[in-house]
Structure formats: C-alpha cells, structure tokens
Simulated scan of single mutants.
Amino acid sequence: MTLIVTSSGRPCAFSEVVEKLAARRGEKLCLGEVVEAFGDRAFGPVMFFFALINMMPWPPGGTTLTGAPLLLLSMELAWGRDELWVPRWTERASVRRSTFRKLIGRFQRGLKLTERLSRPRLHFLTGSFGQGLIGIACVFLSIVLVLPVWGGNLLPAVAVGFFSLGVMQRDGLAVIAGWLLTAATVAVLFLAWRIIVASVSHGFDWIGRIA
C-alpha cells in the first residue's frame, strides 16, 4: 500500500507515514501537517487517517470536530474532485500528538497486516462512479460522526476506514465491507430512533395517567 509523500517525493507505506507523523516534535498534530505529508491527491490516505482518529473513544461531542474534516473530504470525493483541497482555516484543526501516538500504537499491527493483505480487485467498485457513491456514503457517515452521540462513532468510523482503504488500494473487497458497515449503521440508527420514540411516547402516556 504505497503513496507519495510530498515532502520527500518518494513512495512510502501508509503505516510508515503515520509513524513519521507520530515521531515528529510538537505538542499538536494539525490537519495541514497531515495533508502535506500525504500529498494533494491522497483522498484515501487522508480519509483513512481521520477514520482512525474517529475510532477513538471520544466523549459526547468529541467527534464533532474530528468528523468535520471527514465530512469535507467526503463531499469532495462525492463531487468527483481529483485533487484534495481543504480551507486554510481548517488546517489548524489538531489533535494532541501524544494521543495520536497511543492511537497508532494500538492500530499499527493491524495496519501493517492490512497492507500485506489488500490488493487491487473488483475495479468497478472503485472507478469514478464507484468513488462517487463512496463519497455519498461517507458524507452520511461523517454526519453521523459529527452528531454528539455517545458511542456512536465506532461503527461509522470503521465503515469510512474500509471505504478509504478501498480507494487507496483500489480494493473492491474493502469497499464491500464499507457498504455492509454502512447498512449496519443505518440499521442501528433506525433501531435507536424507534427506541427513543417509544420511550417518549411511553413517558407521555405515563404522565397522562398520573394527571
């Protein structure tokens, strides 16, 4: 799984790039630094990076900030842009580098295993039309991430991670996994909505009986 690191211009694995970002000095890791490391055309790697960030156990509202860059990137992918672009003011969005080091330590073994297993296949799922559909799905998943829902970040973040892996590696199997997890996210949201509606209705009935 190789990509171009613009600062050096040489091929580099995704796991190597994130290791270098974690090893750099500085208290915070900013979005601008991530975009510069992966390059202007690295939709998949940068989205995968933020998918990892959103897999962390954030408190309610924590993914509102970490999910916002994913929402922007997803909209660009759905629109069919060839080059990654972020507004200058968003480049200052950051996460503590110490937190990022812990995150990478947790996922690095899995990342390296993924690099060995993934490969180009089922190309029709990662073509221009397929990427447009992936972008639309990721817009939905990013909106879910932005909502302040306790524990609601893991499933959509993993789905975005598989979609991003599919875009990076042209791996249609990873894209299929992303679609299955997107369907699971929809099912969980529907179930949660039904429970909330039923609870509110039951509450009003209970108050009515007391009154």
Results as ranks from 00 to 15, higher is better:
110 G>H: 14
141 L>P: 11
171 D>V: 03
25 R>T: 10
67 G>S: 03
97 R>C: 10
1 M>R: 02
128 S>D: 13
127 G>P: 09
48 F>T: 03
191 L>E: 13
95 V>Q: 06
136 I>K: 03
164 S>N: 01
102 K>F: 04
55 M>I: 06
118 S>D: 08
86 V>W: 02
25 R>K: 12
9 G>R: 04
148 P>S: 14
145 L>C: 06
8 S>A: 06
26 G>F: 07
165 L>I: 01
30 C>A: 12
16 E>F: 04
97 R>W: 11
9 G>P: 06
61 G>K: 09
30 C>N: 07
91 E>F: 03
95 V>R: 02
7 S>H: 06
167 V>Y: 09
111 L>F: 05
92 R>G: 13
163 F>Y: 13
68 A>L: 14
154 L>S: 11
132 G>D: 10
103 L>I: 00
14 F>D: 02
200 V>T: 10
180 L>Q: 04
159 A>L: 07
169 Q>F: 14
55 M>V: 01
195 I>Q: 14
124 F>Y: 13
17 V>C: 13
191 L>W: 15
129 F>K: 08
88 R>T: 13
151 G>V: 04
37 A>M: 08
94 S>R: 11
194 R>Y: 14
192 A>Q: 12
2 T>H: 10
189 L>W: 13
36 E>R: 01
48 F>Y: 13
176 I>S: 09
175 V>W: 05
176 I>N: 08
168 M>Y: 08
155 L>N: 03
209 R>V: 10
109 R>K: 14
105 G>M: 07
59 P>Q: 14
117 L>N: 12
161 G>V: 07
193 W>Y: 11
106 R>E: 13
121 R>W: 08
184 A>P: 00
192 A>W: 13
17 V>F: 02
122 L>R: 04
34 V>R: 02
159 A>G: 12
1 M>V: 05
160 V>N: 05
35 V>A: 08
11 P>H: 04
27 E>G: 03
173 L>C: 10
175 V>M: 06
199 S>Y: 10
169 Q>M: 13
186 V>K: 01
106 R>P: 05
2 T>W: 14
38 F>Y: 10
102 K>A: 11
86 V>I: 12
18 V>Q: 03
73 L>H: 01
56 M>I: 09
16 E>N: 04
16 E>V: 00
91 E>V: 01
154 L>T: 08
172 G>N: 08
61 G>D: 11
39 G>L: 04
23 A>R: 02
205 D>L: 04
125 L>K: 05
180 L>A: 01
143 I>L: 11
21 L>N: 01
30 C>D: 08
80 G>F: 14
161 G>P: 00
114 T>A: 15
75 M>S: 10
25 R>G: 15
211 A>Y: 14
82 D>C: 07
35 V>Q: 07
39 G>P: 07
84 L>C: 07
53 I>M: 06
145 L>P: 02
140 F>S: 02
7 S>W: 01
166 G>R: 07
167 V>S: 07
8 S>K: 01
136 I>R: 01
203 G>H: 12
211 A>I: 08
142 S>L: 00
106 R>A: 15
187 A>G: 06
116 R>G: 11
75 M>K: 04
27 E>S: 09
71 L>P: 00
25 R>W: 11
203 G>W: 15
61 G>T: 06
58 W>V: 02
176 I>E: 06
68 A>F: 13
45 P>R: 00
